[in-house]
Design a protein around this nucleic acid. Structure first.
Lengths: 336, 336
DNA sequence: GTGCGGTGTGGAACCGCTTCCACACCGCAG
DNA sequence: CTGCGGTGTGGAAGCGGTTCCACACCGCAC
């Protein structure tokens, strides 16, 4: 493989000049530049990103930290990130986080611009100390669907989302409304599910109702687990007439449970989800839509801005809207 | 940030020794090793991957080339890759390919071990010249769902898959079987869809039938496009009693078209897909299952093996099985 | 003719690591 | 006591770029 000095020799110039051509420095005469470019062409020269990175102290790479890459919502966000990075000179390195230990390792390793020039963190609240260290090291960070002190983030109002879903059911006339979410305590410190539950409770209270512990259940974030839990809910003597699931994946579990129990949706039970992943439109699921793809795209753009403008990069917070998408899984309860 | 010579100074040893400790060289006395490790600990030292990469000529990174990252099947393969790379020391860099020009740029840039030590290519038949160049440069390549000369690959028998789907419909008694695939000519040179069509035709011939051009339609690989095309097929005076779609995404479009036309599935029309993506089990779609996740995992493992064993790495071909998964979208045709 | 600022250019130093060669020091055989 | 192989160790050279300083050369004003 040709190196910069091969090119220099071939063009009959010094290496500094070749480097200047590479970096579009204005202080190279037209004639020289042409000679150098010709030499590059002939030798099929490509600069080494590694060497360039080492000497410049940046590696034209953006790191993406995603927990539980198996979630459909994470994938949709990833797509947005990929789209935004597409025309940028940055490569995307994927760090999958499966456990808190994993997360800590990655955060520790990313405190230098050596592995990534900037960091995108999805859904993962970074431990404050790690975050401070990374920011202190001058590595720009943008959080997507997570909160942290003093860093830009792309978020939604999960409490409001919970309210939106629940108010919709209330407006249809439901009074016994179940909730299925994820365990509020979790090793990563995810908060979305707890906040959505809070919104659910608040909306109930607005309507003069109180949270009924028997109607609130937790399950892992997958269809099977949600189905199991939902089955129990639907088997209650006085079963809810509607269920709000804190994610679409879980909502599909509720649909499966209803179907298994011989219940009609929305005739016997209404179901609302959260996210609006691809599967939801297919299933006709009423849901609270959050702009997943957009969140990734916008987060990546914010990071690029920070990487570019450098200094003028301050902690902006971008809140994305939530919308109720009414499809065919919600209706007024049957007259009892 | 601490460098190797900071550590050396702190431990009172030479840099060579620190490097030897880093690389687990046996020729370091126990006492010295302990002193060095202590110094690293105190200084919170982390070696620079960039510098290490530059000096060793490898960058502990695996590149993944994925076209049209929007496809569900590509994502599922990506998951397999991520899983396999998880315990390896390699980082994953994602290269999204949106156009042939893009593809060529990436291939050209990847001919050095400078950007990636090894390459995973998904569904993208590499131009022979580029491939030869990369292999010639000593960069191991594994193709997933694509074929190329002299490189290891993970593939399935798409022709057989087409036969499986079609035979299933024939066995149920269907005689007028439509096919919806993607345009056989495409800028990337994808072959899967054409091969599946070939299997479809072969199976028809086995049954003494011939391909009827009016029953064969092409659409883009998305639900809406497939739905449009399927609608036309279903509007034929003598419409097919079954449709084989060359991907599940398109099959869901067929289901939508049937529903829009007021036709029952499988009563009025049977539908078979291909892939078995997540949505398919949800939709109850009968389909030809290919192990997507596994293909990614196995491909990545093959690459790791090649990266590891280096020399003994020769072109193995791993063919993954296809299975018919019968769900609820296929049945015998109504007696006319 | 001399002095001066500006413009291109060459190349050394450096980024942080690996690798290899040189060498000090050891015990042991002759 | 000398010579010799083996074991740890130090540090220079090199990986392929960037950056900065020095400098040659130019035209121009004086």
């Amino acid at each position: 493989m040709a190196t910069i000095s091969d090119v220099a020799a071939h063009a009959g110039v010094g290496l500094g000049t070749v480097s200047r051509v590479l970096n579009n420095s204005p202080k190279v005469s037209v004639a020289t530049r042409a000679r150098v470019m010709a030499a590059m062409e002939i030798l099929d020269y490509r600069p080494s990103p590694l060497a360039r990175g080492l000497s410049r102290g940046r590696c034209h790479t953006v790191g993406l930290l995603v927990p539980l890459f198996t979630h459909a919502s994470a994938v949709e966000r990833l797509r947005g990130v990929v789209a935004a990075l597409h025309d940028s000179p940055y490569d995307l390195v994927l760090f999958d986080v499966e456990s808190p230990r994993h997360r800590d390792e990655h955060f520790a390793a990313l405190t230098k611009r050596d592995r990534a020039d900037g960091l995108l963190v999805v859904s993962l609240p970074p431990p404050a100390r790690d975050l401070a260290k990374i920011v202190g090291a001058g590595v720009p960070v943008v959080l997507i669907d997570a909160r942290g002190d003093g860093v830009p983030m792309v978020i939604t109002d999960d409490v409001e989302g919970g309210r939106i879903a629940t108010r919709h059911l209330l407006a249809l006339g439901h009074r016994r409304i179940g909730y299925i979410g994820e365990e509020p305590d979790n090793p990563f410190g995810f908060t979305a599910t707890a906040l959505r539950e809070q919104g659910y409770v608040e909306a109930l209270q607005e309507a003069g109702l109180t949270r009924d512990g028997r109607l609130v259940r937790y399950s892992r974030h997958d269809r099977q687990a949600a189905q199991q839990v939902a089955s129990k809910l639907l088997a209650l003597r006085n079963r809810p007439t509607a269920i709000f699931a804190s994610s679409d994946v879980q909502a599909t579990g509720v649909l499966a449970a209803a179907s298994a129990a011989g219940l009609e949706v929305p005739g016997d039970v209404s179901v609302v989800g959260f996210d609006d992943i691809e599967i939801s439109s297919y299933a006709g699921l009423t849901t609270v839509r959050q702009p997943l793809f957009e969140s990734g795209r916008i987060g990546a753009e914010m990071l690029l801005g920070a990487l570019d403008g450098e200094e003028e990069h301050h902690a902006g917070v971008r809140q994305l809207p939530l919308d109720l998408v009414v499809r065919t899984t919600t209706a007024a309860p049957k007259a009892a």
